[in-house]
Simulated scan of single mutants.
Amino acid sequence: MNYPKSLLALAVATSFSAAPALALDLGTYNDTSISIGGYLKAEAIYEDPEQDDDRFFGRANQSRINLKTVTQKQGHTIVGFVEGDFYGGLYPGENNDLRLRHAFIKFDNATVGQTWTGQFWAVAYNDYLDFLGGPRGTLGGLNFRTTLASYQFNNLRITAQDPVNNDADAPDLAINYNLNFDGGHRLILTASGREVANGDYVGGGAIGSEIKLGRHSLTLNAHHGEGLGAFTGVGVGGSLASDVENGEAVSQTGFNAGFRYVINDQWRANVAYTKVEVDDQADTDYEAPRVNLIHNIIPELEVGVEWRKYNLAFGPLIPEGQQVEVMAKYSF
């Protein structure tokens, strides 16, 4: 296992950005290297909701900081990682408490603690500025982190995690298999299983892919099955989808496509579209397009603008309608 490469992948996934992952090395003490990382992000957002008045607001809740330790001893590698952001409160400008995002231990190929679900790793992501709604409709839709145990065998990852259903008798499960091809192309195959509120243990699957087109890239993701709304954030129950309606498990089918166009070393643009069809009576079918432009002033500092539209509301921060965001992010 290439642990520096593995941790770099974690950092990239944590920030959802094509910009280089950064960290400040504090030094090595008794076989343990220590570093801090994170970013500060300021956002200005204009909303044009379908059911309410237009509004403008700013926030910086997404800003985060992490501490990482890596110990090499007796032929083993032990990684400790803890990270928090300021989404402990729900509304912008209110109760911006520090919130635990990640807190895990990685011992060689085994990981225990709080971090991304196995379902999160099913998705090939491209750049988006909307931290709360950007991946919604994919299996990474809720930026979902939970307490879990996982083990990786080369390209195969098996994860057992704290169940979404508090009354479940068994852990939620995910199995990921990654295929990497020449030229940087990749394919991710995922199987998901969990016990839903009616007591049924249900399952589904997903395919994620990234196709390199020179400097540019195309991402295609699809999923189908029951019990997936808890991860996509779409379905019966909204952002806390129960995946059960009238006592029966609800299935859904979703598709996400994104294209990243790299203009040069400083500029890149992204366009993406997500659609989910839910087999329910509550009419929770979902679709969302988005377009953004991102400029790296220097590798550590980027600014961007994004337009997006949601056909469903997901709480006060993601209303039905259009949003335009302008942001600045400084990574360290």
Rank of each mutant, 00 (worst) to 15 (best):
K5F: 03
S6W: 15
L10I: 06
A11F: 13
V12P: 03
F16T: 10
S17E: 03
P20M: 02
L24F: 10
L24E: 08
L26S: 07
D31A: 14
D31C: 05
I36D: 09
Y39H: 09
L40T: 08
E43R: 15
A44M: 11
E47Y: 15
D52G: 11
R55L: 06
F57P: 02
G58E: 11
Q62K: 13
Q62W: 09
L67F: 03
L67Q: 05
F81M: 11
F86P: 01
Y87T: 12
N96G: 14
N96Q: 14
N96Y: 03
L100R: 11
Q114H: 10
W116D: 01
W121L: 12
Y125A: 14
D127N: 07
P135M: 11
R136C: 05
G141K: 07
G141W: 02
G141I: 07
L142R: 12
L142M: 02
N143P: 00
T147R: 15
T147G: 14
S150D: 08
Q152F: 02
T159P: 00
V164Y: 11
N165S: 02
A168S: 07
A170R: 14
A170D: 09
L173R: 03
Y177S: 01
F181Y: 12
R186L: 14
L187H: 05
I188S: 09
G193R: 09
R194G: 00
E195K: 01
E195I: 04
V202Q: 13
G203Q: 11
G204F: 01
S209L: 08
G214E: 06
R215P: 00
T219P: 00
G227Q: 09
V234H: 12
G238N: 06
G238V: 00
S239E: 13
D243Q: 10
V244A: 05
A249C: 04
S251L: 02
S251E: 10
F259I: 02
F259N: 04
V278A: 05
D280T: 08
D283H: 07
Y286P: 00
H295S: 13
I297M: 13
L301E: 05
E302I: 09
R308V: 01
N311H: 05
V324Q: 06
F332Y: 12
